[in-house]
């Protein structure tokens, strides 16, 4: 069995004591090293609050959150936890401090007291990994949205985190920026074994996860592989979500157009292959 990265036991949280309902209501969740987990749910379902619990920005009212064995409620562990868990936020413009790309990536390392020589080496390595080496001397605000997000990821990677949380990190990007950022993250997940937790409304993005959870009213209401979750689409739309393109199209092909397709095809390619076979067999 893989190492446990995150272990949440019956986590409850609310922002104000007088609020009648929990924002997070008895959440239990296990995340293993190297996993790509997608968390989805409508606005206000508790996704972002959950993310903030994962690096100790918020601490549980009841229950516990453990990151690599450290409790987030233990203040002495917070430094270690925050070094292990990097977060990339939605708005690329709100996360820059340096005047150049290089300064910005170095900022986190300086904060963590990484020795200079080590820092220089990690700096070029992380910029290389996100494909931004040639932009070292540039001012961050001159970059495109996707490039900014990749610089933000480089800053995190330089700290050698075990987990990266993407909090709607691609939702403000143009199509290319979005696919570049996801490509970099999949690469880091595969080659470096970095655990990825991606909070997203984008069902296509969620579809590429190893596992996904669906949140509603502060609870985890569905959990499984994307294929399993979308096999039973009932209820997802009512929860304010959507279905991936191929799932919707397949339903229409079967129900409205009488095609004899299986429910197995999940990617566009698989669906086209099935259409091809269907045509050959007849």
């Amino acid at each position: 069995m893989n190492e446990t990265m995150i272990d949440i036991e019956s986590l409850c949280f609310k922002y104000r004591n007088e609020d009648p309902d929990w924002i997070l209501d008895h959440i239990s969740l296990h995340v293993e090293a190297g996993e790509w987990l997608a968390i989805t749910g409508h606005n206000g379902s508790g996704k972002s609050t959950l993310a903030k619990c994962l690096n100790g920005l918020l601490v549980p009212e009841q229950g516990s959150v453990k990151v690599k064995g450290f409790f987030t409620s233990d203040e002495d562990s917070l430094w270690e936890i925050r070094r292990s868990v990097g977060m990339v936020f939605q708005n690329p413009d709100n996360q820059f401090v340096g005047t150049t790309v290089r300064d910005d990536v170095a900022f986190g390392m300086e904060n963590h007291g990484v020795p200079r020589e080590e820092m220089v080496q990690r700096l070029s390595e992380s910029l290389e990994l996100v494909g931004m080496s040639e932009f070292q001397g540039q001012e961050p605000h001159r970059l495109s949205g996707g490039q900014k997000q990749r610089v933000a990821i480089a800053g995190i990677v330089a700290l050698r985190p075990s987990i990266i949380i993407l909090d709607e990190a691609t939702s403000m990007l143009d199509p290319r920026g979005k696919s570049d950022v996801l490509k970099v993250m999949h690469e880091l997940n595969k080659t470096r074994g970095i655990t990825v937790i991606s909070i997203t409304h984008d069902l296509e993005e969620a579809s590429s996860a190893d596992r996904m959870i669906v949140m509603d009213e502060g609870r985890i209401v569905r959990e499984g592989t994307p294929i399993d979750i979308f096999k039973e689409p009932e209820g997802l739309v009512e929860m304010g979500l959507d279905l991936p393109f191929t799932v919707k199209l397949r339903q229409l092909l079967i129900e409205e157009n009488g095609l004899n397709l299986s429910e197995k095809a999940f990617t566009e390619k698989e669906l086209v292959d099935e259409l091809w076979k269907l045509q050959l067999n007849i």
Partner: peptide, 12 residues
């Protein structure tokens, strides 16, 4: 200017 950014699929 990008009026749907950050909204869930239904809100969108």
């Amino acid at each position: 200017d990008e009026p749907t950014a950050g909204l869930d699929p239904r809100g969108h």
